[in-house]
């Protein structure tokens, strides 16, 4: 990582639906370029971010496919750590139920949580400050 990229942060919100996922990826790639994140890390980080955003669409808004709510993604970095925070107003996450699927259950997105766990160093679920309901924070040491 370039040492000039210290204490940087970018945030953007997106309509909660699957068609927003490509916009989430584009935003992430732009920010990683701007923050000069190691090119070898970028695409796997984009995957982790997209999987987490997908989980919001699929699970937090499972019963509301036509919602007009928006979710926010904030990417922050210091010299030592990258932090990616997600904010949504969907169904509260029950952390104990967040796990990857059994091997023989391969519905779409079923491997997403596994991918996030593989790529990131830590995953924390928090209650979101108003107006948010959920706040997921992923970190990766740089």
């Amino acid at each position: 990582m370039n040492t000039e990229a210290t204490n940087l942060s970018e945030k953007k919100d997106f309509l909660v639906r699957s068609s927003s996922l490509k916009d989430v990826r584009s935003f992430s790639r732009e920010v990683f370029e701007k923050f000069k994140i190691d090119e070898n890390l970028r695409e796997e980080l984009v995957l982790a971010i997209a999987e987490a955003a997908q989980n919001i669409v699929k699970h937090a808004y499972k019963d509301y496919p036509d919602t007009q709510d928006r979710m926010a993604v904030r990417i922050s970095c210091t010299d030592k750590e990258l932090e990616i925070a997600f904010f949504d107003k969907g169904k509260p996450v029950e952390e104990s139920k967040v796990k990857h699927r059994a091997i023989d259950d391969v519905k779409p997105g079923g491997l997403g949580t596994f991918f996030i766990q593989e790529i990131m160093d830590s995953i924390k679920f928090k209650e979101g400050d108003k107006p948010w309901i959920n706040n997921l924070v992923l970190t990766k040491k740089l």
Partner: peptide
């Protein structure tokens, strides 16, 4: 150029 877990699921389902 990009595939996520949904794409992997399609491959696994196709094999099954």
């Amino acid at each position: 150029q990009y595939m996520d877990s949904s794409g992997i699921s399609v491959i696994v389902e196709s094999n099954q």
